[in-house]
Design a protein around this nucleic acid. Sequence first.
DNA 1: CTGAAAGCGCTAACAC
DNA 2: GTGTTAGCGCTTTCAG
Lengths: 356, 356
Amino acid sequence: MKRVARSTIKEVASAAGVSTQTVSRVINNSPDVSSETRKRVQDVIEKLRYQPSALARSLIRQRSHTLGVATAGLNYIGPSRTLSGIALAAEAAGYSLLLMELPGFEVHDISPIMRSFLSRHVDGIIWAVPEVGENHAWVTNQALDLEVPLVHITMAPRKNNSVVFADNYLGGRMATAHLIEQGYRHIAHISGPLDWWEARQRKASWKDVLDEAGLEPTDEHWAEGNWSPESGAQIFEKLLEHYVEMDSLFVGNDQMALGVLQVARQRGLRIPDDIGIVGFDNLPESAFFTPPLTTVEQDQYSVAKLAVEEILKIIESDWQGLESVHSRSLILPPTLIVRQSSLRVIEGSGAQGSIK
Amino acid sequence: MKRVARSTIKEVASAAGVSTQTVSRVINNSPDVSSETRKRVQDVIEKLRYQPSALARSLIRQRSHTLGVATAGLNYIGPSRTLSGIALAAEAAGYSLLLMELPGFEVHDISPIMRSFLSRHVDGIIWAVPEVGENHAWVTNQALDLEVPLVHITMAPRKNNSVVFADNYLGGRMATAHLIEQGYRHIAHISGPLDWWEARQRKASWKDVLDEAGLEPTDEHWAEGNWSPESGAQIFEKLLEHYVEMDSLFVGNDQMALGVLQVARQRGLRIPDDIGIVGFDNLPESAFFTPPLTTVEQDQYSVAKLAVEEILKIIESDWQGLESVHSRSLILPPTLIVRQSSLRVIEGSGAQGSIK
DNA sequence: CTGAAAGCGCTAACAC
DNA sequence: GTGTTAGCGCTTTCAG
């Protein structure tokens, strides 16, 4: 396969019989070029398939129009939806994306990643790694005097940091309150791994809502899973033993809820009659579980879009020499999606008839 | 928030009292530096937190150590797993990734994307967009004299193109043959959208295996879905009407198979006794469907890793001035994962006892 | 072993 | 309107 070399501004210039300056003016749509010269240059550009080097431009303009994005766990639905949103939003704004995936969630030394981003002159960094363990501890140290703006996705709000996330706590409240409304009174919880901030948020909301309703949650009423269907199944079996009055569960994600559904079926428990279930995430599959799963949806696309807009705003204002936009937390509300797994017939409500 | 400026090689040089040359030698581990000078320079580098500019380096070396990656449909499991594999493999090899997500699968004019990649001097491009409709037609035209190597993931093999993919046809054969082995004789098929190359491959394998077995597939025995559970459910209902002898299905992906499972349950059909089902993809959830779903797994990670290795090999040989590595297609075998949805008791086999 | 000069591809600041 | 000079941050000759 032959490899055609890039043509340079110099080649275009000499082919058109002008200086590189004039070519530069043409490709930057400067008005100070006679229309004949412009035409001539443009013809040459087309003939040579000339494409200005973004690299050289970035160097001299000190602006790369590139965003660094750090992610982890792209094989999970959440992170990949988020990344997709970031990519689409960035491209729409004319920015390129430099992607780095962390090999795991709990990465302690992020400096190589930051160095890599900075050495490539990114204009800003979006840190789209869920907060797990101490993996965001560096924020308070290393990133403070960072030379480019940084926006976090899904991290506990911290002073002096820009953060965007969907409200997991509120989502958990909605889920738990919904179960109470449906007449359930013995509501168990299966949490995600508690070193995840999101898992803690969801668990806290469950506890708070039960407390407020006087339903007294105890340590026998919940246990910690690892997000997988397997763990959901295992824990549900344990709960069945230790929490015999249990009539429903708020489960930390849909995958674990799927494990619960499986065990329930094996045990001959009717859902939602004997056991009501609510999950979290709204997987594309959840509507087709048996029965269809009530769940909480986070709009990861909007989160991502907001994060991109926020960082571009900061970049823009920095660049215009304005005082930095002061950092803030943007929190998006989730949506409760009610399906059959939690819809118990309430007397006189006629709800059942409306379910398809 | 204060923004510390990057320090340059010049600053390091003057702070250390040497020329920029010497600093360059130190950061490139050139042996021709006295150990005292080296030490002095390294101290300054550390103090100033100096980080060489990859941009400037790329410009002068004509080599960016960056790969362009085009994807589409990151919210689907396949593309995101593939991307994850690419990212991890590229990082391990010391390459950065420039990511572009196409807004849809069927994109006709890819030149803006290519231009964007080329203007940023990528050393190679991985085109990880599934082949849908005419979206790879440009390959035979535009990319032929491309100035950088290009490797495709999941495209029909074409002469003079480097392609890596998992063998969908073989996967479909394994799935269909498995159903026959299990004693099913009336095997239907729900395909993905047939403008997808992968969907066509899977369908062709179904037809071929039935033909070879003398089971005479007809147009009443299959229909085209759109990958979604909804479509799987709808089509299954149709098939139940028009193909009354049907005793099993090979479904084009797990999501559609999920739709089939749901309808089967509603109709009181026992799986695998009345109807055997095999899917494709092996979603994390599929093992927890009711019943657990037999499916075909593609190792997207290996595909991605191979693609990265292949392109690096080409880049390397190009750069050493060798004749270009001649392009080839790398095809990976899939794995059949047998679960209960297709495991019918075969007389005397004792198979049932081994299922948990 | 170390430095000076030239230049990667482009643009900003001046000239003319 | 257009060209010249300088320089973004770095590396590659080539002197010494």
